[in-house]
Design a binder for these strands. Sequence first.
DNA 1: ATTATATAAGTAAGTACTCACACAAATATC
DNA 2: GATATTTGTGTGAGTACTTACTTATATAAT
Lengths: 183, 183
Amino acid sequence: MQVITHFIMTEKQEKILHSALELFAKEGYSATSTSKVAKHAGVSEGLIFRHFGSKEGLLDAILKEGEEKAKLLFASIVFETNPQLVIAKTIDMIESLGKSKEGFEFWKLQYKIKWETEKYSEQKMEALHMSLSNAFNKLGYETPDIEATFLLITMDGLATRLCLQESFQVEPMIIFLRRKYKV
Amino acid sequence: MQVITHFIMTEKQEKILHSALELFAKEGYSATSTSKVAKHAGVSEGLIFRHFGSKEGLLDAILKEGEEKAKLLFASIVFETNPQLVIAKTIDMIESLGKSKEGFEFWKLQYKIKWETEKYSEQKMEALHMSLSNAFNKLGYETPDIEATFLLITMDGLATRLCLQESFQVEPMIIFLRRKYKV
DNA sequence: ATTATATAAGTAAGTACTCACACAAATATC
DNA sequence: GATATTTGTGTGAGTACTTACTTATATAAT
């Protein structure tokens, strides 16, 4: 088994990761067999285990990529000093979620895995929570911490609808939120 | 295979249903085998198929029970005429969610299944949505429909946290919401 | 005497994973 | 610079085990 360095990666390695992401997001982790992933990627099943060690190792590789993507996404919010922009950017985040097909699959997997494996990534969100709490404090909100939690929970709910309810219209909700927070 | 009438049900049938609910909620539907359910319920595996036809039939029986539970829970809100009480009762709903162990498992399964099988139960919530929309309208809110959607999404987000984040404190959020809507 | 309840012991198909073996590219030795 | 040696990439057929589901058979209730 090989350590994945992210920079050196064979074509087939990438194909496996991409296929696994797609299938895990569509069918779920437990319901997707390694043989299905191999067939979809057009490689032998053994290659998955050569590169990722186990089925769980394959999932971990996908989730690790995800963490870096999330960090990148949060960075522009966390380093923002204008409190109104912090809130506005947080709200806008949800819009970018469904823009690309790959991005949508990625976030859907994150949520699906959260329910399937029961490992809620509290710490990943902590930086964002602090930024929001700080922003609400600057703007003179009474309970900035709860206000921040509340907005993040709302974003969670919105993302859930976006992933599971095809007919769901996000735009009206985003406009509603912007007006509510005056950003 | 037998039609489940809900009123006539053997002890073993109930044990199967109860065990399946517990295991599906804990491990997920795909990750729970029928043999696991049988062992947990203390019956032979064949009995599951005699009574429920298939693994999916077993799930359907649980979900059907769930629909009736949900209807009962929503009834006291839908038939409420005081708009402030409609909102208050909707918010309070989340508190009752985690009260009993069985109730918690039941709602956890509902959410888990929603992510695992991709069948979002829009219509189940429609009556509640209309009641809320009507309440917000009576109270003079500008966009009562969006306001109702927003509250329901918030409730979704809260339920998610409650199910997945053990450390999560609901009470402060409920107090916050009550103050926010002045109910 | 019929019907419903229950089981134990099957079934074929799938599961995650291993292993022997082939080939290609990089590295070391002469 | 040619040759030997290691290393990484890839496969296909296999492993033991689990999966959802069936069937023959026995017992209990009506």
